[in-house]
Design a protein around this nucleic acid. Structure first.
Length: 531
RNA sequence: GGCUGGGUAGCUCAGUUGGUGAGAGCGCACGACUCAUAAUCGUGAGGUCGAGGGUUCGAAUCCCUCCCCAGCUACCA
């Protein structure tokens, strides 16, 4: 495999200080499903994720814990972020850390290049600095002071006056890219997806961009500027560069040429601006090809509001996988949320879909088909005889589903593609109930019975292939009784021809999605202020 | 305040460029069946498509005004 077109997809790198929640998990799963789909259709696929480890906040928390920032990051990567990927069955091809030499070297080369080309210049950064917070504040972070500070602008957190400080910084000429970016959005309307995200960005850029301060000299936990080691690079520029350094920017020309540019940067809409404005501007300045798409997905809503730790609605991925398993996590968020829109999460909803769709729908379908082949044919898959119109409907759907789903996934329509495949689950359950193979068995019409079960068997095999990117564990289990080898090696766009790898004899298996006791399902948290 | 998106059956949501009596899943009621994880299949009840105007032969779908909800309003990520 891997002889087809390049499909390089990225997720944001995790800020190591964060605590993993289902929002991180959602992004990773979506990227992983798309990557697995492309990989299984033969594309030269590369899924990248990693961690963002520089910056003042990490330096500060590391110091508070009495360790070096690198030790702090090492600990979090091992304890939090690698486990997140394992928990959700993410098959990433690489995991880059911004503290790795390959990254730091590439970043230095990149900024030196921009400096040499005249896109970076020294300037004065002026801002309101809060001594308590030890950082600069935006106008919007300030409030009117009260009491002894009445009439002054004070920090919203410390309620003390801020100081107007000037710092000598290096700036990137972002302002020069206002028009080139608008041209880009115009020329390539699907550069930013979905349209709602694009509208946000276009409106923002139309107001005009100001140059971006890209260095700091007040702390040193970051990548030093090659021409002025007193400054470290602004963490966002540092972080964005991971997409390039991970695939060999400035170091491995052949590898870089193979992967670059990315087909898709998948990000949450909170960081869309960095990816759809600053990042393409940096790439334009460097003369590098731009990514094909930046996709801003929606929020996970709990109780009607963006999930939030401070409102006590934050949920850890393991809370869900401990109860329902990783496949259910993956399926639920891919199926229930219109990709690109915000989506509501509730325990009641995931429990209902788990039972109705995974357990009663797909899992039970596999059970009943295998059970009947075992019961009526001792497990030997029967040949199909004369095909009736009812059989034809099923067989046609099996034949059409791969292309129909493929079209959706190529358009990043994950929930649409999943729904397309799921039609087969529903049709097969209906087909079996209507054909009543158990009644046919009593009549002694073995030929007809064989045709029915052969048809159903073709269907569940196709499902094992098609659903593999979404629910890999269950599909691997099902495939182990149906076919030879690894299901991921069956070309997904030819899933209807899976029978070329079929095993002649099947056996029954434990339920793919065993029922979950309602008492194990937690109550959905309510946003704090609503409680 | 400005910007973006949303307000459609009890719940979660679809509804292409306006056109047969407004849809799906879940939930609920009734019925069929027994291969299967007490699973499956069928039928049915249920909606002033946020409010009010307007354009049109005809609008959930276009225009205007308003109400409500969420998010964003850049150098912490």
């Amino acid at each position: 495999m891997a002889t087809g077109a390049s499909f390089f997809i990225t997720t944001p790198i995790f800020y190591v200080n964060d605590v993993p929640h289902i929002g991180h998990g959602y992004t990773e799963v979506a990227a992983d499903v798309l990557a697995r789909w492309h990989r299984q259709r033969g594309d030269d696929t590369f899924l990248l994720t990693g961690t963002d480890e520089h910056g003042q906040k990490i330096l500060r928390t590391a110091t508070e814990h009495g360790v070096t920032p690198k030790e702090w990051a090492d600990r979090l990567v091992e304890d939090a972020w690698h486990p997140l990927l394992r928990t959700l069955d993410i098959a990433n091809d690489d995991f880059i850390r911004t503290t790795q030499p390959r990254h730091e070297a590439g970043v230095r080369r990149f900024v030196q290049d921009l400096y040499d080309k005249g896109y970076i210049y020294p300037g004065e950064f002026e801002g309101y600095y809060c001594v308590g917070c030890e950082e600069y504040k935006q106008e919007s972070d300030l409030v009117e002071g009260t009491g002894e500070f009445a009439g002054q602008r004070v920090c919203a957190i410390h309620s003390k006056p801020v100081e107007l400080l000037k710092e000598r910084n290096y700036f990137f000429k972002l302002s020069e890219f206002t028009q080139p970016l608008l041209d880009l959005y115009e020329r390539q309307p699907d550069f930013i997806r979905p349209d709602s995200a694009r509208n946000e960005v276009v409106q923002f850029v139309r107001q005009g961009l100001t140059d971006l301060s890209i260095s700091r000299s007040s702390f040193d936990w970051g990548i030093k500027l090659p021409w002025d080691p007193a400054h470290v690079l602004y963490v966002w520029v540092d972080a964005l560069m991971n997409y390039a350094t991970a695939v060999g920017y400035g170091d491995a020309a052949a590898a870089f040429a193979r992967r670059w540019p990315p087909q898709m940067h998948l990000v949450g809409k909170d960081i869309l601006r960095f990816h759809a404005v600053i990042w393409p501007a940096l790439l334009m300045a460097a003369g590098l090809p731009l990514p094909e798409h930046v996709f801003g997905h929606g929020w996970l809503l709990v109780g009607g509001e963006k999930m939030s730790k401070s409102k006590l609605t934050g949920i850890a991925p393991t809370q869900i996988t401990d109860v329902f398993g990783s496949d259910a996590f993956r399926y639920y968020f891919m199926r229930a949320i219109s990709f690109g829109h915000d989506g509501s999460f509730s325990w009641e909803d995931i429990a209902a879909r788990y039972e109705a769709e995974l357990a009663n729908g797909f899992g039970n379908l596999a059970s009943r088909v295998l059970a009947m082949i075992v019961k009526y044919f001792d497990g030997t898959v029967p040949e199909a005889g004369d095909v009736t119109p009812a059989d034809r409907v099923v067989l046609d759907l099996v034949g059409q589903a791969p292309a129909a789903a493929d079209a959706r996934f190529l358009d990043f329509d994950i929930n649409g593609g999943t729904a397309e495949i799921w039609r087969l689950v529903d049709v097969l359950n209906g087909y079996i109930t209507e054909q009543e193979p158990w009644a046919v068995a009593k009549t002694g019409d073995i030929a007809r019975l064989g045709t029915i079960l052969n048809t159903a068997w073709r269907g569940i095999g196709a499902l094992a292939v098609l659903l593999s990117p979404i629910i890999p564990k269950a599909c691997a289990t099902l495939w182990s009784v149906l076919g030879e080898g690894d299901v991921r090696d069956v070309t997904i766009t030819a899933a209807d021809r899976w029978t070329e790898r079929a095993r002649p004899v099947v056996h029954t298996i434990a339920p793919l999605f065993p029922r979950v006791d309602a008492s194990e399902v937690p109550a959905t948290p309510v946003p704090r202020h609503q409680a």
